[in-house]
């Protein structure tokens, strides 16, 4: 479903991704782990279509189509969703207005009719209830003044409403208390389906206890340096990233030598 091939990305002239190769199949839950600054969020932003990155090589394909030339909203309409590591506060924009606009924009793009008000409200209420989100929070401007954990829950709420086919969750677990983690994981698991893929970025095994991945990938120095099954996450938890950092250094030496 999602294929990333030899992806090289720069920001402001600095190389951050150095040839990422990654495939996530329909129905799969893939986890990415890796040290701070290894490029995990950068990968998620580039896949979602943020502007200030320069792709110097490689492709990102969704259902076989290269999506790198598409606007972020076009990617969303194709079924891509990114739960942000740091969701933005948007003062003055009512949460519900935004939800409705987002849901209808995607439907419109796919040639589906707009949601009517009762249908929209019913969906929001049901999803909010499942995620333990108070109605009062939905009356506030988007994410404004929300706690870190509340923002993460709102991201998952939006995911549930938009029903993406390929969702990237960037450290959705950080900032969540133990109960919230369980609720959010339950929300994600409820969405697991044959035709849906997840890419879960996390630092902790804790999340993967609840959302058990099919595959685990280690990112270091802007590349996927190792892939394996769920046991790989446990190994990392026990041993840390020692060894991977060295690999990165070797790489850097190699690329410096090539210049």
């Amino acid at each position: 479903m999602l294929e990333i091939e030899n992806l090289h990305v720069q920001v402001g002239g600095k190389a951050i991704l150095n040839g990422v190769d990654l495939k996530v199949e329909a129905g799969e839950v893939a986890a990415i782990m890796g040290p701070n600054g290894s490029g995990k969020s950068t990968l998620s932003y580039v896949v979602a279509g943020r502007e200030d990155y320069t792709v110097t090589q490689g492709e990102v394909r969704l259902d076989g189509d290269n999506i790198l030339e598409l606007e972020p909203n076009e990617r969303a309409a194709k079924g891509l969703f990114l739960a942000f590591q740091y969701p933005l506060e948007i003062p003055g924009v009512a949460t519900m207005t935004f939800f409705k606009a987002a849901m209808n924009a995607q439907r419109k793009h796919r040639g589906e009719p707009e949601l009517d008000m009762p249908d929209f409200l019913r969906r929001v209420r049901a999803a909010a209830k499942q995620l333990g989100i108070e109605q009062e929070m939905l009356k506030r401007p988007l994410n404004v003044g929300f706690s870190g954990g509340e923002k993460k829950r709102m991201e998952i709420l939006q995911m549930a409403l938009l029903e993406p086919r390929c969702a990237i969750l960037d450290e959705t677990d950080s900032g969540l208390d133990i109960d919230a983690l369980r609720i959010v994981a339950k929300g994600v698991n409820a969405l697991r389906a044959k035709d849906r893929a997840f890419l879960v970025i996390t630092h902790y095994q804790r999340l993967l206890d609840h959302i058990v991945p099919d595959t685990v990938h280690v990112m270091s120095g802007g590349r996927i340096v190792r892939s394996g099954g769920p046991e790989l996450a446990k190994e990392l938890e026990a041993r840390g990233y020692r060894g991977y950092a060295e690999e990165r250094t070797t790489d850097e030496i190699a690329s410096a030598g090539a210049k």
């Binding site: 279509g49 943020r50 606007e71 909203n73 969703f81 933005l88 948007i90 606009a101 987002a102 849901m103």
Partner: peptide, 19 residues
């Protein structure tokens, strides 16, 4: 902010208008 709104499906003009 624009990217955030667009990543949820809003076309650029709609995202701009909302902001």
């Amino acid at each position: 902010q624009l990217f955030y709104l667009m990543a949820r499906g809003l076309p650029r003009q709609e995202a701009e208008a909302l902001l």
